[in-house]
Structure formats: structure tokens, C-alpha cells
Amino acid sequence: MTTLITPPKSPAPISAERKSREARRRFSGSALTTVTWLLAFVFFAPVIWLVLTAFKPESAAASNPPVFFFVPTFEQFEAVLSNGAGAYFLNSLIATGVSTILVVLLAVPAAYAVSIRPVKKTQDVLFFFISTKMLPVVAVIMPIYVIAGQLKVLDNIGTLIVLYTAMNLPIAVWMMRSFFQEVPAEVLEAASMDGAGLIKTLRTILIPMVTPGLAATALICVIFAWNEFFFALNLTAANAATVPVFLVSQMTSEGLFLAKLSAASVLASLPVVIAGWVAQKQLVRGLSMGAVK
């Protein structure tokens, strides 16, 4: 990697031949830009291929050699949408939307309690929250399956909502904490002098100040909930199945309906891809749970 980026070493002393150095730098700069574009293209190529395949007629999809030029068609998208995809998308929308709202409602007061007017043992509480994130999901899937069965909430969208809320809550608490910590102490002092209670302080001062943070938190919750597969696979069937489960059901005869599968993949990924593109700046902070700004 160093060989790619290291500019050619000049044996001459620094003060001499400034012009030729400048020219060389400009050349190596544009070479570097070309390399960057090329690497990005190679890395992005599977996405391009996925989208291209989605617009192919089925006969051109699984072919050798690959077909690059074809008359694009919406046939596959229509086929996916008329194949009952709507119900799965609705389930995903409900599971993602409701769990994200619940996460925010629970996380904001909690983050307040560990940052603005910290409770005792704040560190331990934060430690606890994040430790639940490290626990392997497979270690709890059996009890959850059995308990959900006994409570008759298998294949129920409510079960997914509860689990997705628990899955995202630790991240949200950590993120909101990092945003609350940026609120200047004087603002809060002024509020408490005025006798504002918790709800009022939150509503009139804190929430408006951390709205961008709230949006970033919600974005991360949406990404993880929308893409979640393991719980959905094991705990849902006909009624509450979400988009990832739908995608897998499209895989039945591998290769034969590749174009349709690709169209379904594009539709399934689109909401999160667009959200992530729009909110690129917030992504890194969310993924690092607020540690990196």
C-alpha cells in the first residue's frame, strides 16, 4: 500500500528543483485519484452487478459469459411486488418503526440520567448496557423461542418489536449520552434555576439541542432493525415475516430466477441504502456508539 501512495523519492535536496517537484506531485496526485477511482469501482462492482441483474430479463441473468448490454425491463420488480412482497415490507416497516420509536423513548431519559445529572455508579450502568450488546444472540434464542411459544406470541410482530428494541437500546443510550455531553452546563443550570422539571427541561431545552443526535440514533436503529435476520428467521412464519425472510424465500430455485431475486434484493436494501447515503456524516458516530465524532 505504501508503494501506491509514496511519491517518487527525489534524491535532490529539498530546496532545489522546486518546480519539477511540484509537477511530479501533481502527476502523482492525479495518478492517485485514478487509483482511488479504480479501487472504488472494483469494490462497488457487486452493487452495480446486482442492480444491472435486477433490470435484466430472466434469460440474460444467469448466463455465461455475462451479459452487459440488454434492454432494461421492470418485469422483475413487477413480479416481486405482485408476489405478495407488500405484506413483508409492511411487517418490516412496523417492526423497524415501532421499535425505533420505543428505543428513543426509553433511551433519551436513560441517557439523561447517565450524563446530565448522573446517577451513582454511572459507569457501571453504561458498562452493563454495552455488555448486553456483546452477548451472542444464539445463546438466548432457545429460551426466547420456548417462552414466546408458551406466551403464544410466536410469529407475532410484537415479539420482534420487543427484541429489536432490546437489541438497539444499548447503542442508543451510549449515542444519546455522547450528544447530551456536548450540551453546555450553563444552559442546564439556567433551566434548573428557572425551576424547570425533567420533562420540561428535556422538551424545551435538551431535545431541540440534540435533534441531530436523535436523528443519527434513529438512523442506526433503523439500519440494524431493518436488516435483522436471525430473530425473524426463527420466530416468525406466515404472519409476521419481514423482508429478509421474504428474500430468502425467493431463493428457492437458485439461478433460475436470479433476475427476480436481484430485483427483490434491490427493493429490500433500498430504504437503508438511501437513509445511509443521506446521513453519511452520522453513520460513523452511530457505529462507534458515539465514541468517534
Binding site: V47, L50, I223, L258, S269, G276, Q280
Partner: peptide
């Protein structure tokens, strides 16, 4: 934007994209 996209693609979609296409 191109480079962050693979992270945003649904993992199930990414897995089938790799294993089949």
C-alpha cells in the same frame, strides 16, 4: 458514497449476491 454502500446493503441480500451472482 460508493465505498460505504456495501455496509448498507441488507446482509441477506449481500450474502445471496456473493454466493450466486
Amino acid at each position: 458514497t460508493m465505498l460505504i454502500t456495501p455496509f448498507l446493503i441488507m446482509p441477506v441480500a449481500g450474502a445471496t449476491l456473493w454466493s450466486i451472482s
